[in-house]
Amino acid sequence: MSASPALLKLDEVTKVYHMGDVDVHALQGVSLEIPEGEFIAIMGASGSGKSTLMNIIGCLDRPSGGHYLLAGEEISTFDRYALARKRNQTLGFVFQNFNLLSRTSAVENVELPLLYAGLRTSERHKRAGAALTRVGLGDRLDHHPNQMSGGQQQRVAIARAIVSNPRVILADEPTGNLDSETSGEVMGIFQELRESGITVVLVTHEPDISAYAARVVTMKDGRVLSDRRQEPRRRAPAAAAEVSA
């Protein structure tokens, strides 16, 4: 192992789903190294295995074969409790449909990971407030999801993902339910997060969105088809926050 190992290291990872009598090989040997602080987009058509890869990277699922090291730890042997702890402390999720708890205020949604981390109420509230401010929603702490636009809801979800200071943010089609203007703002926030040192793994099928990443991995039939670096498209994050605030 090298002096500075990759934060995420997948080595010949396979995943097989048993659907009745049929075995579906969702991943057929994926090897990938993602160093800390990288903004990487995983692309591919539906059925290419990109979501399965995302679930494994996100510790929501375990590989059927191969090795997955997250911050030097072998994940494939972890039980449900250890996986939950990893998701809580090392990872943050952003979903296409936001997945905020309804009838729950923005700040309480953002506090959720801290609740499971066992933080005190005052500390939770402070940190959730700070996270919401960071995504430009410092004045909407007590708003409920149904009082917010899609872009605002996704910002709440991003605040929830970053509130426990994770090392990796996993975003699964984060702009799928947003218009292009709002999508640009959200991508700007991701770029800003990357600049602060957080590794961002983005799953998308839209080239426009993957353009914001510095590295694009394309999947096909459960394998890595291509892995290339590019000059990311820029968007001024400060301006983005102003527009939607």
Binding site: A84, N88, Q89, N99, L112, P113, Y116
Partner: peptide
């Protein structure tokens, strides 16, 4: 079920 999924994603373990 969705709420349970979200809670699990942000770090709730089975005991929680």
């Amino acid at each position: 079920t969705r709420e349970i999924g979200v809670r699990m994603a942000v770090g709730a373990n089975p005991t929680h």
